[in-house]
């Protein structure tokens, strides 16, 4: 078992909260994990990514080689395309559909959609809308994780347990909202 994941988004969107749940779930399954993060200057509204690697054998490189990612999980549609060179030929992109526009030369959203549509394996969802429907806008990241759940190579129960571990100290309301968001994301795909 080996899954290479790139998480992408814009600094401040919170890709690391998704990574934390996946890591926790992978450890529960006894897998080896390496996760490389970006801290520092680019967190101020710049493009950010995290390389996350899960395997039943020890993982060597902290970074995923080109063409080797099984999955790109992105909180922003243009950012989902930035790492396309790392995606396997048959890899999946799971992305939030709504652009985060903080630059003047942001491309036309329809052009981004057209590029995504050219790819064979994509899931494009308005995760904020789904989160709002479940009653917790703050759980949009967990909705996205739910939509990615079947591509991770992890059991869904492990992700649920990961959520309980990560959000447990914030109280049962937060845990329940995230479990609901996880299920809603999975169902929406």
């Amino acid at each position: 078992m080996k899954t290479n994941i790139i998480l992408s988004g814009v600094g401040g969107q919170g890709i690391l909260s998704i990574a934390a749940i996946i890591c926790e779930a992978a450890l529960l399954e006894g897998l080896h994990v390496k996760q490389s993060e970006v801290h520092g200057m680019s967190q101020r509204g710049g493009d950010v990514q995290s390389n996350l690697r899960l395997s039943d054998r020890p993982v060597a490189s902290d970074l995923i080689p080109r063409g080797q990612a099984d999955l790109i999980i992105s909180l922003e549609p243009m950012e989902s395309l930035r790492y396309l060179a790392f995606l396997k030929k048959d890899g999946w992109i799971v992305t939030h559909s709504q652009p985060f526009v903080n630059i003047n030369n942001y491309p036309k959203p329809s052009d981004i959609r057209a590029e995504l549509d050219k790819l064979p394996n994509t899931v494009v969802l308005d995760v904020e809308e789904i989160a709002r429907e479940t009653g917790s806008l703050r759980s949009a990241n967990t909705v996205l994780l739910g939509a990615s759940a079947d591509f991770l190579g992890l059991r869904f129960e492990s992700l649920q347990e990961g959520i309980r571990q990560i959000f447990g100290r914030k109280g049962s309301d937060v845990v329940d909202a995230n479990l609901k968001a996880l299920a809603a994301g999975r169902a929406a795909r």
Binding site: V10, G11, M41, S42, Q43, R44, G45, G46, D47, P65, R66, G67, Q68, M78, E79, L81, R82, Y83, L84, A85, F86, L87, K88, K89, G91, N102, I103, N105, Y106, P107, D111, I112, E115, L119
Partner: peptide, 21 residues
């Protein structure tokens, strides 16, 4: 033993530099 990119990054993807909040 380099691995190859399966696809190129589309030209419409532009840099997103950090900025003051």
């Amino acid at each position: 033993c380099a691995s190859e990119a399966a696809r190129a990054v589309p030209g419409i993807v532009v840099p997103r530099p950090p900025a003051l909040c």
